[in-house]
């Protein structure tokens, strides 16, 4: 039998969104899609896969590398070896993918973000996305893949029929690795390096009295406030919020730089952000050289207008 197997990721009772990229790639491969799920009560769209394989293994044991291999033994026994095994490119997805590759002696390609049209080769980023490599699997055998979050979810095509359900229970689990508990990362003070959306203010803010309004803005935007060095020097914001060579290095999804001219030292701390938007009244400000989008204008006016639009 020829099929694609997805090992899903469920975290604290939530079917992770990044599974959609596993599904998207699986649909592009045009073979029956089997999806392996841990025990638990969570909704999964029944028109995404042809077969849902339910297990009685709790999510935190399901994603342990040896356990997933022991479970796969059973899957293979029941349905034969899949052509492709897809996992998410996440902490546990990659951990399991590597162990599966070693355990079953299979080729593995991680962080896959594309595929040629004949589905023969896979693309993977190298050197922090500076170049991509195209990988072929000469052996024709099964291959283990982890997919980059966001890369394939657009290719999901709903099935016309609901998926069939299969169940595997009674897998003898590994005792060499035991789950103890989930822990929240310690938060001593605000950690701007963990924020997905930073609104960063610079010297252009003018004076301290303007800052509370930025707090309000980040409140309505659900963003985190950061700043450049001069703002910290003036004691307007604490050092923990400083981005730059002598502060923190950040890589948020969006970095909205307001009133920051873009000194070399500041750029060093934020240039790898996924999307940089700059607001500055000086059209020549160097920050515009690094930004993806720019607004030439007064940062405080932009702030007030954004607040107005968001409230309205």
């Amino acid at each position: 039998m020829s099929y694609t197997l997805i090992i899903s990721e469920v975290r604290r009772g939530v079917f992770e969104e990044r599974n959609l990229d596993s599904l998207g790639l699986a649909h592009m491969l045009k073979k029956p899609v089997y999806m392996l799920l841990p025990d638990g009560q969570y909704p999964v769209n029944e028109r995404w896969s042809d077969v849902l394989i339910k297990t009685d293994i709790k999510e935190e044991l399901f994603t342990a590398p040896k356990n997933i291999c022991l479970l796969l033994d059973k899957v293979i026994e029941r349905f034969s070896m899949p052509d492709v095994i897809i996992l998410t490119h996440s902490s546990s997805g990659t951990e399991c993918a590597s162990y599966i590759a070693g355990y079953f002696k299979l080729p593995v390609i991680t962080d896959v973000n594309g595929m040629d049209k004949d589905a023969k080769t896979f693309y993977k980023s190298y050197y922090s996305d500076k170049v991509y490599g195209e990988f072929a699997v000469p052996g024709q055998g099964p291959v283990v893949i982890t997919v980059r979050s966001g890369a394939f979810r657009g290719s999901i095509e709903e099935r016309t029929h609901a998926s069939k359900e299969e169940t595997i229970v009674g897998v003898f689990l590994d005792s060499d690795r035991a789950f103890i508990e989930f822990v929240e990362e310690e938060k001593t003070e605000i950690d701007i390096t963990k924020a997905e959306f930073l609104v960063s203010v610079g010297r252009g803010v003018g004076n301290k009295d303007e800052l509370p309004a930025y707090d309000e803005l980040t409140g309505v935007l659900n963003a985190t406030l950061s700043c450049s060095r001069p703002v910290v020097d003036k004691l307007w914001l604490p050092k923990a919020r400083q981005v730059g060579q002598s502060g923190k290095t950040v890589r948020p999804k969006v970095y909205l730089a307001m009133g920051i001219s873009g000194a070399f030292q500041h750029i060093a701390g934020m240039k790898d952000s996924e999307c940089i938007i700059a607001v500055n009244k000086d059209p020549e400000a160097p920050i515009f050289q690094y930004a993806h989008y720019g607004i030439v204008g007064d940062m405080n006016k932009v702030r007030d207008k954004l607040k107005e639009l968001l409230k309205g």
């Binding site: 910290v232 003036k234 050092k239 400083q242 002598s246």
Partner: peptide, 12 residues
């Protein structure tokens, strides 16, 4: 000092 920012703020 181009590479080291002091923790204590003061007028530069």
């Amino acid at each position: 000092r181009m590479f080291f920012d002091v923790e204590v703020p003061y007028q530069r």
